[in-house]
Design a protein around this nucleic acid. Structure first.
Lengths: 154, 154
DNA sequence: TTTATACAGGACTAAAATGGTACCCAATTG
DNA sequence: CAATTGGGTACCATTTTAGTCCTGTATAAA
């Protein structure tokens, strides 16, 4: 399926919710209530997002979470990385030289290019896009062009 | 990580190997030997690829596997779907109306667009590309354009 | 200063997906 | 018929994922 983990999905929903009310401080309990998900799980997700630097937290009464930067400066790739680690399709796309099958594999290079293309795409989608109810209009030439041969193998 | 499962990875490697010698019939044992992976696992993978219609098989002595169609007509998306099922980032990207959280979610539509963009990208990469040792040159305007608003929400 | 609020961190458990194996059957060739 | 090679199924071990809980700590307000 090549799908996101459920937690990542939650993270996106929660981030979008916060992004829609950027000036307020959002308590984990409130968010959990709003998005109809179990509180401890939402809480866990929020902590991961803080650790990744996408949210800031404030303890104590009237505390809660806020975006660390504007929604248009947070990308889908950021959110995914925060929960799942770096976006990469294969083991060897993240750290090269680790795969002892490289010799017989023969597809590693091209998978890496595909991986990069996907990453670029995900970096072009911002939280502002996701949170908006209007359809995304993705930038047209940029992402694909940047992954073609010249950019990668240079 | 948004990564492919290990079996999918194997599938790509094996498919590439077959694609490099399209006229020959490839026994599972030979392929396993060539790509240095356990025989039963490779065998399992091959069966899935047959079931998905990407390979044809011939039983008996001198039997083995061959591509069901030319390498340039088999896409990365085909291979991934064969092993992992349809390419979709979220639960609701594959079958709509299934998610009871849709009301509070608010990001479903846009995730689906992203999902579609990735699928389109993966469909533009063929087995011929993967098997070639030369870098892929992905088509430039096509995929991204096709996912922008008009194509999806129409 | 006390108290209630709310995040931080980590340990733990249950469930599911994944990967790998084994076994027996079916088809083909010679 | 015998040898080869794929087909199908069931099973097990491991890992990953998801979810829960508990204890600690910072902050704000009364």
């Amino acid at each position: 399926m090549l799908k996101l983990s459920r937690l990542t999905d939650y993270a996106a929903v929660v981030m979008a919710q916060i992004a829609r009310h950027p000036q307020a401080s959002h308590a984990a309990a409130d968010l959990a209530e709003t998005v109809q998900l179990p509180h401890p799980t939402v809480s866990k997700t929020l902590k991961m997002l803080v650790k990744a630097g996408l949210l800031t937290s404030q303890r104590g009464a009237q505390g809660g979470y806020r975006l660390a930067r504007s929604a248009s400066q947070i990308t889908a790739a950021d959110i995914i990385s925060a929960i799942e680690g770096p976006v990469a399709m294969t083991e060897c796309s993240q750290a090269q030289g680790e795969c002892e099958l490289a010799a017989t594999c023969g597809v590693a290079d091209n998978w890496q290019r595909v991986s990069l293309a996907i990453r670029t795409l995900l970096e072009s989608v911002t939280l502002a896009h996701l949170a908006a109810s209007t359809p995304i209009k993705l930038p047209v030439q940029l992402p694909i062009q940047s992954i073609s041969l010249s950019a990668v193998s240079a």
